[in-house]
Design a protein around this nucleic acid. Structure first.
Length: 284
DNA sequence: AGGGATCCCTGTACGC
DNA sequence: TGCGTACAGGGATCCC
């Protein structure tokens, strides 16, 4: 279990940026395994050869997706590598010739002897190459909701989205069409901070609760980014370093333990097949 | 359009 | 020790 959410993906991007890749791509290797299946990813099998000879440029994040652009040296349109870490995906910085870890699915060799590997045991991750325009116009990215740290994600927006929904608030926070980048860890942590129970129907939240929840989400994500992500079990950044945010977790993974705010026993419940932990006293 | 179920996949934990 | 099994969980897709 790796559980990369927005702060972890942002940290991965930041480490890749700091690594300052600029040498051209010498070669690309792709495993024979399918990663994420679906219409949106169908063209994934193609395009890897087109990366060869190109120079790596900007690295961006959108929700839990990583976007890495590769410029042509002969004037063609830029190509963009779209990458999702899924449940168990990791990026690893290596040197050319270094052994590939088990479950490596993509390996990019650069002219400066460095190599970037994508490793994903469970294969819930996804890889695709397309033009930047293609990624934004055709599927995947265009269905994503606003970035939770952007101004577009405010109390009014959340309230507007929640007021017609009967689903549990925790599940709506996991819906990437509503807001992009939140997973189970930060959803339950934000709900604890906002004092809202995860099973509450989304439409039952008051305007004040929506405001508290938005503020909690932003604060929790910002802190987690500053701490370079949460290493609950396996998460590592591309250099193999752990995150430091796990000490900040108040409820995730703490079911049946005492609430850090009031001492009551935290409860675990299962919503839509995914566990949610909350404090029956602090959260209404 | 919203919501629920289903499927994808392997490492880990646990019972016997 | 080794084997079988339940479980975890993001997101695409399908169906109502």
């Amino acid at each position: 279990m790796n559980l990369p959410e927005l702060p972890e993906v942002e940290t991965v991007c930041e480490v890749l940026r700091q690594a300052k890749f600029s040498a051209a791509v010498k070669g690309v290797w792709r495993s024979d395994f399918n990663l994420r299946i679906g219409k949106q990813w169908r063209r994934e099998q193609e395009g890897w050869e087109q990366i060869r000879g190109r120079r790596p440029q900007m690295i961006a994040r959108r929700g839990k997706y990583i976007l890495w652009s590769f410029a042509s040296t002969t004037g063609e349109e830029a190509l963009e590598l779209l990458l999702h870490l899924g449940m168990s995906g990791q990026i690893a910085l290596r040197r050319r010739g270094q052994d590939k870890a088990k479950h490596t699915h993509l390996s990019i060799d650069f002219e400066d002897e460095r190599r970037v590997d994508f490793v994903d045991p469970r294969r819930f991750g996804g890889l695709k190459v397309d033009s930047p325009e293609g990624h934004r116009r055709r599927g995947i990215l265009k269905t994503l909701g606003p970035e939770p740290l952007s101004r577009a994600f405010g109390a009014k927006y959340l309230q507007d989205k929640m007021c017609k929904r009967s689903r549990a608030i925790r599940d709506t926070l996991l819906d990437q069409r509503i807001v992009a980048g939140i997973g189970n860890i930060y959803a339950v942590e934000a709900l604890f901070a906002a004092k809202v129970r995860p099973q509450r129907p989304a439409q039952s939240l008051s305007a004040q609760e929506c405001e508290l929840l938005v503020k909690a989400i932003k604060a929790i994500l910002r802190r987690a980014i500053a701490k370079r992500g949460t290493t609950f079990r396996d998460y590592r950044d591309p250099e193999g370093s752990r995150g430091d945010n796990q000490s900040q977790l108040k409820v995730y993974g703490r079911g049946e333990q005492p609430c850090r705010r009031c001492g009551a026993e935290l409860k675990t419940l299962v919503l839509g097949g995914r566990s949610a932990v909350y404090c029956p006293v602090c959260q209404l």
